[in-house]
Simulated scan of single mutants.
Amino acid sequence: MTENFIQCPRQSKSPGEVGEQYFDVLLSRSFFQQSSRFKTCFVMHNLLIDLEKYVSGEIYFRLEVDKGKCIPKTTRHFFIFNRRDE
């Protein structure tokens, strides 16, 4: 919602409701998977994360992969990967 990707063509639904519908569609297409450790959390497969990083370029910074590098000033999304969270 904060990036204005959610469009509400019908005023009868809030951006939160539309976002929930988008999430459910992506979940049904295996874009997201339920975390094996935390049942209320969802994760993306590493291949999808790598694709997102490739497409987004320097606006995305993943600490585990990019460790040792300086964080670019163009970074808008910062991700910290913790193996214990899998």
Rank of each mutant, 00 (worst) to 15 (best):
P15D: 04
F5I: 06
Q21L: 03
C70I: 12
T74G: 05
F61S: 05
F32T: 06
P9G: 11
I59G: 04
T40Y: 11
L26C: 09
T74N: 12
L51E: 06
L63K: 09
E3V: 08
F78D: 13
H77E: 13
L27R: 09
E17P: 00
F81I: 08
F5H: 07
F81Q: 11
D66F: 09
E3T: 15
S28L: 01
R10H: 06
C70N: 13
G57S: 11
F38L: 10
D66Q: 06
Y60I: 09
S56C: 10
S56E: 12
K53F: 00
Q7R: 08
F38G: 00
H77W: 09
G16T: 08
H77Q: 09
D24Q: 14
N82D: 15
F79D: 15
N4R: 10
S30L: 06
F38D: 15
R76Y: 02
E64I: 02
L47E: 07
E86V: 09
T2R: 08
F31K: 07
F79Y: 15
K67R: 15
L27M: 07
D24L: 11
P15E: 04
P9Y: 06
T74D: 13
K67V: 13
L27G: 00
Y22F: 11
E17H: 04
F42L: 08
L63W: 07
F78I: 14
R10M: 08
F32C: 06
F42D: 05
K13L: 09
Q34D: 02
K67L: 11
K39T: 10
E20M: 06
Q11P: 05
E58F: 00
F32Q: 08
S36N: 14
E58K: 06
F42K: 15
G19N: 00
D50W: 02
Q11D: 14
I71G: 10
R83G: 01
L48D: 00
F81R: 07
N4Y: 09
Q34A: 01
E86C: 12
L51T: 01
I80Y: 11
H45D: 14
Q33N: 12
G57Y: 09
G57H: 09
M1R: 02
C8W: 03
C8N: 01
S14G: 04
F32N: 07
E58Y: 03
C70Q: 15
M44W: 12
N46Q: 15
P9L: 04
V18N: 02
R84N: 11
L63G: 00
T74C: 14
T75R: 04
K39A: 13
L27E: 02
E64C: 05
N46V: 07
L48W: 00
V25Y: 12
T40A: 15
S12G: 00
E52Y: 09
D66C: 02
D85A: 15
I49S: 02
F42G: 06
N4G: 12
